[in-house]
């Protein structure tokens, strides 16, 4: 089992979709939401994902392909 901590930022168009549900169901990832702010037109979540490494990578890729921004909790680690 591997773990990763990420911050998801949802564009307005995706707010109404069951993204997190699909992540759990289709990728067999256990999620643990620690902090979130989701309203009608924006949303972010700080959460922990747990699953096997391949599943996490595929899950993160799927999120990005859907248009969800996936950042580490620290957000920009690369500093100019």
């Amino acid at each position: 089992m591997a773990r990763t901590r990420v911050r998801l930022t949802f564009p307005t168009a995706l707010i109404q979709e069951p993204i997190v549900y699909r992540l759990v169901k289709d990728f067999d990832i256990v999620i643990n939401i620690r902090r979130a702010d989701v309203t009608a037109d924006h949303g972010w979540m700080a959460l922990e994902l747990e699953g096997d490494e391949g599943a996490l990578e595929r899950g993160v890729k799927w999120l990005r392909d859907r248009g969800v921004q996936v950042d580490p909790l620290e957000r920009d680690v690369i500093v100019p």
Binding site: D71, P72, I78
Partner: peptide, 13 residues
């Protein structure tokens, strides 16, 4: 990509 490198650095840390 920037996102990949960024996340890798977080994992390294």
């Amino acid at each position: 990509t920037y996102d990949e490198v960024n996340r890798l650095c977080s994992e390294i840390a």
